[in-house]
Amino acid sequence: MDMFAALRAFVSVVEEGGFAPAARRAGQAPSSFTRHVDALEASLGVSLLNRSTRNVSLTVAGESYYPRAARLLAELEEANNHIREGEGPPRGRLRVSLPASFARMHITPFLPRFMAEYPLIELDLVMSDALVNLVEQRIDVAVRLGALDSSSLIARRLAPHRRIVCASPAYLAAHPAPVEPQDIAGMACLTFAFADGERYWRFTQGSRLEQIRVKGPLRANQAEALKEAALAGFGLVMLPTWLVGDEVAQGLLQPVLTEWQADISRPGAPIMPDSGIHALYLPDRKGSRKVRAFVDFMAERFGTPPYWDRAL
């Protein structure tokens, strides 16, 4: 039995959701995938897959075996690519984890140019706001927004991550713009939804700290919905500059309390360290030319300051 061929077949069947789609992607007959997985199960003495006429699913043993097999293949691929890259341009599959809204606005528009510059790199994008495990999900590089937790991951700062409070000109024409953070307590605020329902905006200015409980006509767990409501004149909103920079530049939204640093918080929560937009990768990816190519490319596209902050 060719162990690596069997592992590739097993992992592909799991990731594609069946023998037929895995075979189609590889341009092979389904019977060849069946033989490889049968041989793998026979060598291990356990069943890895539950099979039916409609689908396949992992057995208990398969759930334990799959992430290890996938990681082994990823490490082999990385080792092969490392050698190949030493002899030529960056190449191979690059699996990237991206926050969905940020990616749609500030990464996917640049991908055609990246793909043209690096035609030997095969991009595999995972666009989700969930914080994925880089090892388990075989992620080469992840883009994360906000303050970072302590970890062994290598982080490269791509841009600052700032929030501002803003509203439409129509709303500010009907309601005096706040001069101090306390002024927003009685104003309509469009707020991000936390599970516990607590909604506070925090403002810092030097050593001064103001934490204001806010309320208003809309709360949502999706920032783009809050932006649309603000554009329609329903109140103040606190959003990251990468999301509202264009609207501010066009005069569709006007920042307020610009002398203060704004953030969302819960009562008693510690003041977070400097926040940013970072590229994260595992220490064993430090020398990867395809990772460096992607990170360098995005940092150059964003600029210093990032293009979305230049009107602020």
Rank of each mutant, 00 (worst) to 15 (best):
M1A: 15
M3F: 08
R8W: 05
E15H: 01
F19V: 13
A22F: 07
A22S: 13
A26L: 13
P30T: 06
S31K: 11
H36V: 00
V37H: 10
V37I: 14
V37P: 13
A39V: 07
A42I: 12
R51P: 02
R51Q: 12
T59K: 03
G62M: 13
R68M: 04
E75R: 13
A79N: 08
N81V: 11
N81K: 08
R84C: 01
E85C: 01
G86C: 04
E87A: 11
G88T: 10
G88N: 03
P89D: 02
R91T: 04
F102N: 05
M105C: 03
M105W: 05
I107R: 04
R113C: 00
M115D: 12
E117T: 05
E122S: 13
L125P: 02
D129S: 01
L131Y: 00
V141C: 02
V143D: 04
G146C: 03
L148D: 08
S150E: 15
S152L: 06
A155E: 10
R157S: 04
L158H: 14
R162I: 06
R163K: 10
I164L: 15
V165H: 02
S168Y: 01
A170V: 00
Y171P: 01
L172H: 03
A173Y: 02
A173T: 02
D183A: 07
G186P: 12
M187Y: 09
F194L: 15
A195N: 01
D196Q: 01
W201A: 05
W201S: 06
I212A: 09
I212G: 07
V214C: 08
V214G: 11
L218F: 14
A220Q: 14
Q222V: 15
G233R: 02
F234C: 00
M238D: 14
P240F: 09
T241R: 10
W242A: 00
W242Y: 03
G245L: 07
E247N: 12
A249G: 05
G251D: 05
L252P: 05
P255W: 13
A262T: 15
D263G: 15
I264P: 00
P270N: 06
P273H: 06
P273Q: 13
L282R: 14
L282P: 02
R285E: 07
G287W: 02
R289S: 15
K290T: 12
R292S: 13
R292N: 09
M298G: 05
E300T: 09
F302M: 08
W308C: 09
L312F: 14
